[in-house]
Design a protein around this nucleic acid. Structure first.
Lengths: 254, 254
DNA sequence: TTTAATTTTTGATGTGGGTCAAATGAGATC
DNA sequence: GATCTCATTTGACCCACATCAAAAATTAAA
């Protein structure tokens, strides 16, 4: 609202990719320092998005891609009846809006699950820049391709796994993504509700709740509301060994 | 096998994009004729792939993208136990292999469901060309983005739909894709088995079989083995009105 | 602090679709 | 043609998870 608010201004903070801890997980990966600087110059700084606020909504004109810098975002659609279908959760370094390139319009909501800082990348500018920086073009294609792989994995999970395996897979995904970002792999806070998790995994929220208590009873987790501690990572991993495809190599660059 | 076989040789047929009926559905969409010619020059002609033959396998080095020209392909993974998980079906004009850009290796099998002709696009060459043809770069990003949208739709379908809605959605997707390619929207042959359809939709093959007979009993379909006729397209459409998101605009360029 | 609203947990019950099994039908091979 | 093999259909049974309902815990508001 007010351009000169009393709170500590975040506007002045020049967040350069070169100084960002996410650089190896994010768009700049593989670019030399000169090209990173050119990329930095097209990034729009935005004030933080607060819990519950939207980055974009379905039908809106597509102008920018967003990279989560801190915080967490969920993407979801809504039925005419009004209930949400969660598509995905997005953590720092992950890009949101890739599905909108297709037809120049967003196809889902993107809502902050907590106070979230984003880097905004105007797409037309990004496209122009890509044409002159081969490694940036390549990295863009990689990011899109990676999203396709992640979603294909999700489809496979939904098609072939029990509720327990789905939750295990979800927790391991969160754990892995946190640890790549320098956080603990076995002790973290979930930003989303049981309802959101259920919607994402195609389960009733009651089922999610029951599974959390069951995994706790089995000594695999310690759960206190949104605070999750993984007590037996190996056992958690062994829960989804079964239906996995032979060559599942979703390794991130790093 | 033999380079000079007795069958009418397909090697001599120079299939130019400019003369191809798929041009508005395929990669050349949006390119001017000069750029289409430059694209044509990098396409490798291959001999047809016969039913059951593989385009690629998991773990293989990623070198090329493939566009189906005629025929049909299924992509799938395999568990250590040996059973297949179908990821998708690919019809003429559709691209296969996009998930492999991510890490330079294929993550699934691509197998011909019937005799299939493909255009092979060596990826490094394609990338170089994209950097000099902005509309080609844009179209590549659109194709990848579209794949993301399609998969997100699939995830939503698996999360929120009954067996009947899934099959209805599948049939409508096939119908729509056939009609865009100039074939009948209400009378076609399915290239894949009940098993494949079930695996794709997360259903047992018995359930798929039962659903076909049920839809036939309701006068919506006429099914004879792989030959499907849609007798009441409106009723079929109305079957998935419910759980659909508000803004589901998966419109193809054309 | 009290009250209200929301989220999470726990229990009881029902069912859609999976699994097992067997019959039927279609191609393929000889 | 006859036989084999594989795909599809149909039936009987059952269970994982959804649904319904209500209590308990947490957060927000007053």
């Amino acid at each position: 609202m007010s351009a000169n608010s009393k709170v500590v201004s975040l506007d002045g903070i020049k967040v350069a990719c070169s100084g960002c801890s996410l650089t190896t997980l994010c768009l700049p990966f593989g670019l030399d320092s000169e090209d990173v600087e050119r990329l930095e110059r097209i990034i729009k700084r935005n004030r933080p998005v607060h819990r519950g606020q939207l980055l974009f909504s379905p039908g809106e004109q597509f102008r920018s891609l967003y990279v989560i810098k801190t915080g967490a975002v969920k993407t979801f659609t809504q039925t005419p009846a009004g209930d949400e279908h969660v598509i995905g959760f997005h953590l720092p370094g992950e890009m949101v809006g890739l599905d909108a390139i297709q037809n120049d319009h967003h196809g889902c909501f993107a809502k902050a699950l907590e106070t979230t800082a984003v880097c905004e990348l105007p797409f037309d500018t990004l496209e122009h820049l890509s044409a002159t920086i081969p490694s940036l073009q390549h990295q863009m294609l990689r990011l899109l391709s990676r999203e396709i792989s992640v979603e294909a994995n999700m489809i496979s999970l939904l098609n072939n796994s029990t509720a327990e395996e789905r939750l295990a897979s979800f927790l391991l995904s969160i754990s892995d993504r946190f640890s790549r970002r320098g956080f603990s792999a076995v002790d973290f806070f979930l930003a989303m509700s049981r309802q959101d998790i259920g919607s994402y995994l195609g389960l009733a929220l009651e089922t999610v709740s029951r599974l959390f208590t069951r995994l706790q009873d089995h000594g695999i987790l310690k759960v206190d509301r949104k605070h999750v501690q993984i007590k037996d990572l190996d056992k958690l991993r062994s829960m989804l060994k079964h239906h996995l495809p032979c060559h599942s190599t979703l390794d991130q660059p790093s």
